[in-house]
Nucleic acid binder design. Structure first.
Length: 578
DNA sequence: GCCGTTTTCGGCCCGACTGTTTTCAGTCG
């Protein structure tokens, strides 16, 4: 069966329908059903084709009869009358208005239906002409906030990468946690869940004098504007454009608030539903019995235990599988930051890196690694000064010399070999088989069809000399979408051929995405966490790769480079024929 | 529109803050 629309497009349309239903003022639970179905599709490992063929689509929780039919129609015909009709009611530019803070579907609908406002520009003009304040439900302040919001959307619409948020958050956290009025403090939200991109920095503190903390927070030198300030909560925008919220609670409420503000929203919803099955009520202050009796919890762990759940680490709280795992006492034991014994896929000055072999090795040694795999670019990557056969041989001599002298780490010989358009590799098979490992990567010709790209990657991973694919989907977070590829099929081919999957730790990449890693784990594939480092500092990026692994629910045993040198080399050999 | 350890109908997580109200709707997380 051939599908006209791929899964990603179907998901997008479902999400769009949810927004359109909100705009139309439909039952909010109906809208939620569409969002929910989109999320379910996004997180299931199965391809849409497989779900349809096996008849599992309608069996999936969150997809009932109506949605099954609509998804099927969309996938097979590429269109859906229900969607088209809904879409016809509103101009597509209304979606831009929804990005303005404090403007939701109701207000946008009012702006559109009373004044015909469709775009940011039109809204800006209407605000400047002081027309907005006359609308019922709007006022002078709303008008002003909309103008500020438009400015903000234009300037800082984007999310930021995890490391950027982390470095902005650290001084805020230190200021709050060291304040004399603070009893306990924590970073929360997506930062604590270690998401790959962050929208704002959430902070929580407990105190007997919340007002003092709020004052101190809004007065911090990093704060550019205060967008909201109450007695227990403040919202600000920092000088660097990132938004930040501080919430202050009483100390006995802290564990509940910590759990609540860590989220995700989906996880919270599931936790509250779980509480209800015991007749409890859970909010950010307490866990309460029906009779009003409060169940005391000293820390977050106690909340999970009170709901007869295993403790769930923050990274797993995405509303996917974690509650089910926790109910069955099956929360995986996650890899820890110190668990890596070495790493592969690093560059040197020989291609486009900034450091020498020795410098990279010394830096790896300083991280406590036992081995470092050098994988410089191959000759097709001419823009990166890729190595040809001769220069590769010279590098090997250099590596042999280094290893004979016995530095802090054993250097492994490798190559990041370009995958050419047809799936063939930039080096001959016998050369790759002489390497200790080889990373196959796509660096050009991104604009293939999904079928062609999938075939290209499968062809590469079937090559005997290849150990794993480098940054499998080619995405650059906040910059470039992944190239079209059927990841499930590539993972299948990887499993079939006994190869590994790279978790590329570069914060721009974090590729393979954690959402897809779980599926690979269930197929028994081993992972390798690599920094793709182009300088010595880049080696430390592996902590972000570990975040990905943790979010995927991977334990130490699933990651090849948690093994000691000898065991690791044995595993490497198993990726080769014979 | 989905779903079932109070249920096949009537729920669907819950509270802070804001602005525009004169008791509350909208938005956000």
């Amino acid at each position: 069966m051939d599908l006209i629309l791929e899964k990603k497009s179907v998901i997008q349309i479902l999400e769009e329908i949810a927004v359109l239903l909100d705009l139309a003022g439909e039952n909010p639970f109906k809208s939620r059903a569409y969002s929910n179905a989109a999320r379910v599709l996004e997180t299931t490992g199965e391809s849409l084709e497989e779900l349809i063929r096996s008849g599992q689509l309608g069996e999936t929780k969150g997809i009932g009869k109506a949605l099954e039919e609509k998804i099927l129609t969309l996938a097979v015909t590429g269109t859906l009358e229900y969607y088209e009709k809904l879409r016809g009611q509103f101009p597509p530019t209304l979606f831009d208005l929804l990005k303005i803070p404090n403007l939701g579907p109701k207000k946008v609908k009012t702006l559109y239906s009373t004044l015909g406002i469709q775009s940011l520009d039109e809204l800006e003009k209407a605000c400047q002409a002081r027309i907005i304040r006359a609308l019922s439900g709007f006022g002078e302040k709303t008008e002003q906030r909309i103008l500020e919001g438009i400015e903000r959307v234009r300037t800082y619409a984007a999310r930021v990468l995890l490391p950027a948020a982390e470095s902005a958050a650290q001084p805020l956290f230190e200021s709050v946690s060291s304040h004399p009025a603070t009893l306990r403090a924590s970073l929360c939200g997506s930062l604590r869940r270690r998401r790959e991109t962050i929208k704002d920095i959430d902070l929580l503190a407990s105190s007997r004098e919340p007002g003092e903390l709020i004052e101190a927070f809004t007065g911090l030198p990093q704060v550019k504007t205060i967008t909201g300030q109450g007695s227990t909560k403040a919202s600000v925008v920092l000088e660097n454009g990132i938004a930040s919220d501080l919430r202050v609670v009483a100390d006995d409420e802290f564990p509940f608030a910590l759990n609540y503000f860590t989220g995700s929203k989906e996880h919270n919803t599931l936790m509250r539903s779980r509480a209800r099955t015991f007749g409890y009520r859970l909010n950010e202050y307490a866990l309460t019995r029906e009779n009003g009796e409060i169940l005391s919890c000293q820390n977050e762990e106690a909340i999970y235990w009170a709901l007869e759940l295993d403790y769930i680490p923050p990274e797993l709280r995405e509303g996917l599988h974690e509650i089910g795992w926790a109910m069955n006492r099956a929360v995986p034991s996650l890899i820890e930051y110190g668990d890596l014994k070495g790493t592969l896929h690093c560059h040197t000055r020989a291609s486009d890196g900034e450091a020498s072999l020795e410098e990279m090795a010394a830096a790896a040694g300083a991280l406590g690694y036992q081995y470092l795999g050098i994988g410089d670019h191959s000759k097709a990557a001419f823009y990166a000064n890729g190595l040809d056969e001769k220069r590769l041989a010279q590098q090997w001599e250099e590596i042999d010399r280094y290893n004979r002298q016995g530095g802090p780490v054993k250097i492994l010989k490798g190559s990041e070999v370009d995958i050419l358009r047809d799936g063939e590799l930039d080096f001959a098979e016998e050369i790759l088989l002489e390497c200790d490992f080889a990373v196959g990567s796509v660096h050009s010709q991104f604009a293939l069809s999904e079928a062609e790209m999938t075939q290209r990657l499968i062809c590469a991973i079937e090559s005997p000399g290849i150990t794993f694919l480098g940054h499998m989907t080619g995405r650059l977070l906040l910059q470039r979408e992944p190239y079209p590829v059927d990841v499930a099929k590539v993972i299948d081919a990887t499993a079939r051929n006994g190869k590994w999957i790279e978790i590329n730790s570069n914060p721009w990449r974090l590729d393979l995405d954690w959402r897809a890693c779980l599926e690979a784990r269930d197929k028994g594939v081993l992972f390798c966490i690599n920094p793709d480092a182009h300088n010595t500092a880049g080696l430390a990026d592996n902590r972000y790769g570990i975040d990905v692994a943790r979010k995927a629910g991977l334990g130490r045993e699933a990651i090849a480079n948690t093994r000691e040198l000898n065991d690791f080399c044995q595993l490497l050999k198993k990726t080769r024929p014979g």
